[in-house]
Structure formats: C-alpha cells, structure tokens
Amino acid sequence: MSRAGYVPLGERVAAGAEPLSRILWRFPPYRWCVTLLQRMGFTGRSAVIAIPYLWLLLFFLVPFAFVLKISLAEALIARPPYSSLFEWTEEAYLVIKMNVANYQFLIEDDLYWTAYLNSAKVALISTFFCLVIGYPMAYGMARADPSWRNVLLLLVILPFWTSFLLRVYAWIGILKNNGIINNILMGLGIIDEPIVMMQTNFAVYLGIVYSYLPFMILPLYANLERLDRTLLEAAADLGCRPIKAFVYITLPLSLPGIIAGSLLVFIPAVGEFVIPALLGGPDTLMIGRVLWDEFFANRDWPVASAVAIAILLLLVVPIVIFQRFQAHEAGA
C-alpha cells in the first residue's frame, strides 16, 4: 500500500528525533543528566509513565489534600480568606490549629442535611429513569441492522457533543409558563391556566435524565452489542419464551453495562450544579449548588471545602466500584 516517495508522518518524526538526540548528546550537561537518570534506574519506560503520572498527581490528587486542609481552617476576611493551619511560634514550635467547627456546622444545620439527602434522592431517581429509557434504546440499537447501528450511535453521541449548558437552557423555553408546552396545551384548549413546570423538582429530574441519557446508553450499547446471540437462539430452540430468555440470559449478561451506565449517571448527578441552578426553584436544594453558593455568594471557603469533603464521603464507594469496574473491563 505504500506510494512511491511517501514517508508516513510517524516515520518522519522518529527519523527527526534520532539526529536531535545525537546532537544533544554532545552537550555534557545532557549526557550527565541522562547517565544519572539511567544509573538511578530510570529508563525510557519510566519516563513515559512518569509524565502523565506526575501531572495527575499534582493536578488531581494533591488538590484534595488542600481541600481537606482548608476544610479544617477558619474563615477570615482576608486574601486568601482562610486561616493558616500550621504556625511557627516564637519558640519555633510548630502549632497545628485544627478547627472542626465547619463540620459541626454542617451536621447541626438542617439545610445541609436536606440538601445532602435530596441530592442522593434526585440522583437515584434520575438514574432509574435513565435506565428505563436508555435500556430499550440501547437494546434496539444493538439489534438494529448493522448498517443502521453507526448512524444511531452517531445520533446518541451528537447531543453529548453539543453544549451541555445550551441543552439545559433549551428546556427553559419548553417548560416555562409561556413556553412551548403550555402554549400548545392552551392553544388546543386543554388547559386554561399554564401548568407551572419551571423551577420545580420535576424540571430538575427532566433536565438530569435528558442530559445524562447518552452516558447510560453508550456503555449499555457497547455491552449489548457484544452479547452472544447464539445463547438466545439456543434458548429459543429449547422452547424458552423470548421474555424468559431476556430475563434469564440478556439481563444478567448486560449487568456490567447497567452498573457502568448507572454509575456514570449517578456520581456526577449527585454534585450537579447547572441543572438545579437553571431549572430548579429556590427550594430545590442540591449539595453541588450549596457548595457553589457557599463559595461564590458567602465567600466561605472553609465551609465550601467541608461540603466538598462531605460529597466525597457519599461518593467514595460508588467511585471505587466504578474504578474496579473500569479496570476489570480494560483487562478483559
């Protein structure tokens, strides 16, 4: 397949890298560094591992330590607006001042409990509806004619690529009192008064199910498409009714897809901010929105950090399950 005189890009890059390293080798500092690294047991392999490893360590893991630290600090009117945890006294003793008042405050105030439990409830119910709507869609896609499958897959992915914020915004125009649904219903004479749908819990559920549906469909589809159809044929040959075959064969085998999809919806939905802020009312308390308000409206960084730690405590088990699962899927 190689056309005459055509050198693939990869080959050109590799060919260019070799003389470069030969030139660099002439400079003693480079040579020393490379030799030192090799003596210490560093190889090209560990460099490849180290680059993304260090990035994620610094910008993903270490920040959580700061969240924990600030959640134990006191709020101050200063820049940055929190007290320091470690202080050197004049006698050079290190004093560590921990302040659990933020957590105490969270536990004692009903607002946070309500928001916390409400978030879990909203996320759970939304996940359930995503599954109910998404499963038949994924199943139908996996059973569709192969030439149709890619088109349908593209149709699921497409909304996921267009702006999340604008898709949530679209529902405002549909749901509000002089919005599309109310206009149609009143135009048809079915109702006289507009139905209030905006700024209700219903709108929040709708928004979450709508926004996260592709996250449910994609892992389910990937799983159902791989499903060995001969098992179903065997069951049918042995006289099993389709419904029974579905319950005893398809459903258990698609469990990994169900779990992956549900976690992909549930975990981010718990901390969701945009949807309750745009579609929910002032009484739609969700923990992500509480964190946002503590941070941006009250400027109370320590309490916001304590809320973040509380959300993580709720999510640590689902996140660990999800990771086990990803690792297992990747290994399989």
Partner: peptide, 18 residues
C-alpha cells in the same frame, strides 16, 4: 478514571485551592 465521574464542583474547588 476518577476525573470521568468526579462532580465538577469538587474538581473546580480543589484546583482553585491548589
């Protein structure tokens, strides 16, 4: 894998503090 599901408010706050 964790950043795939981590709620955005937590990622945002933790990075800001960093």
């Amino acid at each position: 894998t964790a950043p795939l599901v981590m709620p955005e408010v937590i990622t945002g706050l933790s990075l800001l503090l960093l």
